[in-house]
Design a binder for these strands. Structure first.
Lengths: 165, 165
DNA sequence: CCTTAACTTCACAAATTTCTGAAGGAAGCG
DNA sequence: CGCTTCCTTCAGAAATTTGTGAAGTTAAGG
């Protein structure tokens, strides 16, 4: 049993999970260090860690943590909190904030739509390629509307099944 | 006007679009060469190209095309077709097949769910981290069900607005 | 069968990405 | 105020990824 004093958790098992979950995120296209930081935050009881704690768990330099955290904050996967009366910062996953961010690939969707519109123009709306692209564009426009509705249904579903009352 | 003889299309404009759309796919996490091949196929009138044609348009070696196409076929983004009476192969995007594949991140979703279940076990279902992870897991399970329904609504919507009759 | 065309695989070179160490700056604390 | 702690930035080293050339495999066509 690898139980570090006082934590009440098997640090090695936690670390194994962190790394394996991070690996899944990497496979899905996420950069390695942000994935590891995110997985670590997701797995800690407090839901937030300091830069130093992250560096220690992941065995990386403060610089690496800094870079990863900047990316995660930009994409709203984590939020930064200043610890009052200290220059320490805590990085936090907000339980649900983060997977909302996942569906907030809205930005990506928007950029794709822009690119596709340009494509329809470049290729000519009346060419076979242009028509194929128009249909693709229509799909993304449809998808964008659906996503908002889907998230709303999720909140209802969650409140009924997980956080009732 | 850069119009290559007989194609009836501005080859340079097409190429520009191909590269810029591919760049968007890369930003979203797709490997470079598959993204370029896919964008090229999406932009050609026939909806399919041979390995040689792809190599010429993208200015890459047959080896690069081969690797990209293998990936795209595995992920069902394109299908391979043998040209009868020839050892040429044609690679095709199926109009709609491809964005169905996009939502068929089912495989990814499933792997995440597996990883999260392991996480709940490792961390303990009654710990704060375990509960947070349970909720995340519930979200993905919910999402999985929703995606199927969403695609069905898309087909209905498309048949009404784009391919009526 | 033998030739040749088309695709694939593999080892390696090149380019890109990723992380570190060191130096620099902001903010608490005495 | 100056010291100290913590975070960030930046140049460069290290590792990974990517694409090429060359050899190998399969199958058509004579």
């Amino acid at each position: 049993m690898t139980e570090s004093a006082g934590t009440g958790r098997d640090a090695e098992a936690v670390s194994r999970f962190v790394e394996s979950f991070a690996a899944q995120l990497v496979e899905a296209g996420m950069a390695r260090m942000p994935a590891r930081v995110f997985a670590a935050l997701l797995s800690c009881d407090a839901g937030s860690m300091t830069s130093a704690e992250l560096g220690e768990q992941l065995r990386v330099s403060p610089a690496a943590v800094s870079g990863a955290v900047r990316y995660l904050a930009q994409t709203h996967m984590v939020s930064r909190e200043r610890e009052p009366g200290s220059r320490r910062e805590r990085y936090r996953v907000h339980g649900d904030q983060w997977y909302e961010a996942l569906t907030n690939r809205d930005a990506v969707l928007k950029r794709w739509e822009t690119a596709l519109r340009e494509g329809v123009t470049s290729l000519g709306p009346d060419t076979p390629a242009g028509r194929r692209m128009s249909e693709t564009l229509a799909f993304f426009e449809f998808l964008e509307g659906e996503l908002a509705a889907l998230m709303e249904r999720w909140r209802v579903h969650r409140d009924k099944t997980i956080r009732p009352g």
